[in-house]
């Protein structure tokens, strides 16, 4: 039993401390994206938590989505979600991604991100501070733990 426990802890620590994040802009104004990049700077340094920004959704554990979903992005968002290997978590960063924000009911968008793909963590703010984004990514770990235990979402 002890061995199984140890394995379980290793699994969890792997996900807790080695989240790779793919950053996807579905039609945002670039404000949130700048804040996401700010989290990489020496001031906030997300790498100390093992969080790494990766260039391909295939490498990602976390999809960091910014902006309300515009029509041209609809197919792409769904495809990028499908391309991310399981277990995965989606975080909606910013007011637009969470609720459409100032673009609420606008004719040229399809609504917030959770109209298109399931979202696990919402980070409100316009734009949210880097601390809030880091907090959102760390909260995503809880969801991943549940996925790993095989209990679904």
């Amino acid at each position: 039993m002890k061995q199984a426990e140890l394995l379980e802890r290793l699994k969890l620590s792997g996900f807790k401390r080695a989240l790779w994040v793919y950053h996807l802009n579905t039609g945002g104004c670039n404000g949130c994206d700048i804040e996401v990049l700010a989290a990489l700077t020496p001031r906030y340094d997300v790498e100390r938590f093992g969080i790494k920004l990766v260039g391909s959704p295939r490498h990602a554990d976390v999809l960091l989505v910014t902006g309300a979903v515009t029509r041209p992005m609809y197919e792409r968002v769904k495809r990028i979600y499908a391309q991310t290997p399981d277990p995965k978590v989606v975080i909606a960063v910013g007011g637009c991604a969470s609720t459409s924000g100032v673009f609420y009911d606008s004719y040229n968008i399809l609504g917030p991100v959770d109209n298109v793909i399931p979202v696990d963590v919402y980070v409100p703010g316009c734009p949210p501070r880097p601390e809030a984004i880091i907090d959102g990514v760390v909260k995503a770990v809880v969801k991943l733990e549940r996925l790993l235990e095989g209990k679904g979402g």
Binding site: R17, A18, G50, D61, P85, D86
Partner: peptide, 22 residues
């Protein structure tokens, strides 16, 4: 920066081994 802990590469590999292989 402060940087990741020394065991970070091990954690990365453990995590990758648990991921779906597409």
């Amino acid at each position: 920066r402060i940087g990741p802990p020394l065991r970070q590469p091990v954690l990365d590999v453990v995590k990758l081994l648990l991921k779906e292989n597409v």
